[in-house]
Structures are given as C-alpha cells and as structure tokens.
C-alpha cells in the first residue's frame, strides 16, 4: 500500500497502555515488532480482528491477521495464557479464514484470565514494522472495541 495509512482497530475495549508496560520482554522490548497494548475491561466479550485480512495463525489465546498487502498484526490475549490451553477461550474462526476488521475472532473473559493468575493485557503488534511508521492512540485513554488504535504507514 502506498500513501494511505492502514488503520488498526482495537481488538478489545479498555485502556490504552504502552507496550513497555507489558510484563513480557518479547512485547515490551518489541522483539517481534512495535505496537501498543490495551488493558481490557472485565466481563465476557469477543476480541475482534484489527484489520481486514486472512488469519495466518490462530491459537485460542492469540492470532495473526495478514492484510492483502502482507502487513500483519498480532493480537495476544493476555500474557503466558498459552498455559491455559484454550480454557475459557472460544474460537469463532479457523486458520486461513478471511476476516473483516471488527469481526469477532475469540470470545474470552479478562477477569477469568486474571483469576487464573495471568495478566489479561492485550498487546497489539505491527509485525516487522518500523516504530516510526506507527502512530498509536494516547496511553491512558479509553477505547471501545473496534475503535482506531494504530495507524501504520510504510
């Protein structure tokens, strides 16, 4: 894509939080790409796709959506939640499926994740992007699910 910026929507509703505050070095040190995080609101909800594209990776607790231009966004529902082995997560999609921004991908409850001893924060990563290419919503502000969270220029 040239010229226009990609818009990355928030997969969950909650409070915009700096990636540096995520308790996992893979995300806080931007090892797989820059981005932003959202501290989700409690209560059962669907996490949605942040962009139009194809689901290239799907786990119960995390997924990657690649746009037609190859730009891919990683959404990780909580930290170390792989250890929950899918419990409490309800997948609405399969790998390879095409999704639209805002389409429900996984149902979950951040309060249940916290009760199980994990941080429910949701890193949203622009894979292999340059930090300068991203503009993120201001930390500390509230976003609703589907609100603009990042813009990503090349």
């Amino acid at each position: 894509m040239t010229g226009a910026a990609r818009v990355v929507c928030s997969p969950v509703g909650g409070t915009v939080t700096a990636l540096a505050d995520v308790p996992d070095p893979v995300f806080s040190q931007a090892m797989v790409g820059p981005g932003i995080a959202v501290e989700p609101r409690d209560g059962h909800a669907d996490a949605v796709s942040p962009i139009d594209g194809t689901l290239t990776t799907v786990h119960a607790h995390a997924f990657v959506v690649a746009g037609d231009d190859g730009a891919a966004v990683l959404v990780h529902l909580g930290i170390d939640t792989v250890k929950q082995q899918g419990e409490g997560f309800t997948l609405h999609v399969v790998k390879g499926e095409r999704v639209r921004a805002g389409q429900p991908v996984v149902g979950w409850d951040p309060a249940a994740v916290r009760a199980a001893g994990y941080a429910p924060i949701v890193p949203v990563i622009a894979l292999d992007a340059q930090q300068e290419a991203l503009r993120a919503a201001e930390t500390g502000t509230e976003v609703a699910v589907g609100d603009e969270l990042l813009t990503w220029n090349d």
Binding site: A62, L74, H76
Partner: peptide
Amino acid sequence: IEGCITRLR
C-alpha cells in the same frame, strides 16, 4: 518444544 505465535517454548 512448542511453537507459540512468536516464540519457541
């Protein structure tokens, strides 16, 4: 060994 999105555990 297990793959988890971005890392090998």
